[in-house]
């Protein structure tokens, strides 16, 4: 699989990373290299093998439905650059 400039631009936008136009070719080459490397896995025959979504041979541990956390708005907001009246604030986003 190889990526072109347009695909790299789209990926950068999804990741919210600013990439200058003159870097796109170079990144397309690098990312294509990574994908090609990983694609070697496709050589293994996985017919009849159940997909593995975790390497740990255990199932999800569960928690009781009890309120044990929260109640520290000041700590949650401590690093927010512009908290007002107990809220985080961001540049206005309206749809």
């Amino acid at each position: 699989m190889s990526l072109d400039k347009a695909a790299v631009r789209a990926i950068a936008e999804l990741a919210r990373i600013e990439v200058a136009d003159d870097e796109l070719d170079h990144l397309a080459g690098e990312l294509t290299g990574i994908l090609t490397f990983v694609e070697q896995l496709a050589e293994v025959d996985t017919n009849g093998v159940e997909p593995m979504s975790s390497v740990a041979a255990m199932t999800l541990p569960m928690r009781k439905d009890a309120v044990t956390d929260g109640g520290y708005a000041a700590a949650v907001l401590a690093n927010a650059p512009d908290a007002k009246e107990g809220f985080f604030t961001v540049p206005k986003v309206v749809e």
Partner: peptide, 25 residues
């Protein structure tokens, strides 16, 4: 439910802003 899906913070409606928030949330 009393607590959230993946954290122990409360779910009740109408609390003070960001008061029912854990670091997970």
């Amino acid at each position: 439910s009393n607590a959230k899906l993946f954290s122990g913070a409360a779910t009740t409606f109408g609390a003070e802003p960001n008061d029912q928030v854990s670091f997970v949330d």
